[in-house]
Simulated scan of single mutants.
Amino acid sequence: MDDFDMLNAPSAGNGVGSEEDPAAAFLAQQESEIAGIENDEGFSILDSGDVPSSLGDTNGESNGPSDAYAAISNADRLQAEPESLRKWREEQRERLEELDANSRQQETEWKEKAKVELEEWHARQNEQLEKTKTNNRAAEEAMISDLDENNPGTEWERVARLCDFNPKSSKQAKDVSRMRSVLISLKQSPLVR
């Protein structure tokens, strides 16, 4: 006897070789249960169209156009979802409808609020525009009246009005203090021709 024959030989000492394989027994049991489920009366209704006697009417009366419809309704009743799931779906649907209604209401409120704010913004913009137009017209009229005045000897005063002599407001990087001092002195004592 070689080494491989010893592995195949049943051993009487430990009892493992004399028994049936537990995995094979489990598989056989599962197969028989599956076969029982496949042959169950509730699932065979839709395949064959015949109604089993346990599900059919005992009085011989039909509840619809044919016994097949009764069998389908009974099968549907057997496969209907549990009451807890049905309640949850209804509550969820109601919650979603309520949230949708709230979001639609909030959306309309936001639209109304945005409309009011937009109207206020347009009113402020128009008011600011009118103020700017009024100021520009007044400045233009003043400038036109100054241009119309062509009195001899007032040229340096007009130049001084057009120049900005405030050194703090000057945004130039160059030093223009000499020019500013010359213009101021010419304004105070104009040149005589």
Score class of each variant (00 low, 15 high):
residue 128 Q to I: 13
residue 127 E to C: 06
residue 65 P to W: 08
residue 62 S to Q: 02
residue 104 R to P: 02
residue 113 K to S: 07
residue 84 S to C: 08
residue 101 A to H: 10
residue 114 A to W: 04
residue 108 T to L: 12
residue 134 T to A: 15
residue 120 E to C: 03
residue 115 K to D: 11
residue 115 K to N: 13
residue 76 D to T: 11
residue 89 R to S: 03
residue 126 N to L: 11
residue 102 N to A: 14
residue 88 W to N: 04
residue 98 E to L: 09
residue 102 N to M: 12
residue 93 R to S: 06
residue 113 K to P: 00
residue 63 N to R: 08
residue 135 N to I: 05
residue 63 N to A: 03
residue 86 R to E: 09
residue 130 E to S: 15
residue 136 N to V: 05
residue 140 E to D: 02
residue 132 T to N: 04
residue 78 L to E: 02
residue 120 E to W: 05
residue 128 Q to K: 15
residue 138 A to N: 07
residue 72 I to E: 00
residue 66 S to W: 02
residue 97 E to S: 09
residue 62 S to C: 07
residue 72 I to R: 00
residue 89 R to L: 03
residue 137 R to W: 06
residue 109 E to Q: 13
residue 75 A to G: 03
residue 63 N to Y: 09
residue 113 K to M: 06
residue 139 A to S: 04
residue 94 E to L: 10
residue 64 G to V: 00
residue 116 V to W: 08
residue 75 A to W: 03
residue 117 E to A: 15
residue 67 D to C: 02
residue 130 E to G: 11
residue 116 V to L: 13
residue 87 K to L: 07
residue 124 R to D: 09
residue 134 T to P: 00
residue 61 E to W: 03
residue 76 D to V: 09
residue 88 W to A: 09
residue 122 H to Q: 13
residue 87 K to I: 10
residue 97 E to M: 08
residue 137 R to G: 00
residue 128 Q to C: 08
residue 84 S to K: 10
residue 95 R to V: 05
residue 128 Q to A: 15
residue 74 N to H: 07
residue 73 S to Y: 06
residue 66 S to R: 03
residue 99 L to H: 08
residue 132 T to I: 06
residue 74 N to F: 04
residue 131 K to S: 06
residue 104 R to M: 11
residue 80 A to Q: 07
residue 88 W to R: 09
residue 108 T to C: 07
residue 74 N to M: 04
residue 78 L to V: 06
residue 133 K to Q: 12
residue 100 D to P: 01
residue 95 R to D: 11
residue 135 N to D: 10
residue 86 R to F: 09
residue 73 S to D: 04
residue 119 E to V: 14
residue 140 E to C: 01
residue 90 E to C: 03
residue 60 G to K: 03
residue 118 L to W: 15
residue 126 N to F: 13
residue 97 E to Y: 05
residue 102 N to E: 14
residue 142 A to Y: 00
residue 82 P to W: 05
residue 75 A to D: 01
residue 75 A to L: 05
residue 83 E to W: 04
residue 62 S to R: 04
residue 113 K to E: 05
residue 122 H to P: 01
residue 97 E to H: 08
residue 68 A to P: 00
residue 125 Q to R: 13
residue 85 L to I: 14
residue 100 D to M: 05
residue 103 S to L: 15
residue 96 L to A: 12
residue 77 R to H: 09
residue 77 R to D: 14
residue 88 W to V: 09
residue 59 N to T: 07
residue 75 A to R: 03
residue 80 A to P: 00
residue 62 S to G: 03
residue 73 S to A: 09
residue 119 E to L: 13
residue 124 R to K: 15
residue 115 K to C: 10
residue 111 K to R: 14
residue 128 Q to Y: 10
residue 61 E to R: 04
residue 68 A to V: 05
residue 98 E to D: 14
residue 130 E to T: 14
residue 110 W to N: 10
residue 59 N to S: 13
residue 137 R to P: 00
residue 79 Q to N: 04
residue 130 E to D: 15
residue 98 E to Q: 14
residue 74 N to S: 06
residue 85 L to W: 08
residue 64 G to S: 02
residue 78 L to G: 01
residue 141 E to A: 02
residue 140 E to S: 02
residue 84 S to N: 14
residue 112 E to T: 12
residue 82 P to A: 04
residue 124 R to Y: 09
residue 109 E to F: 12
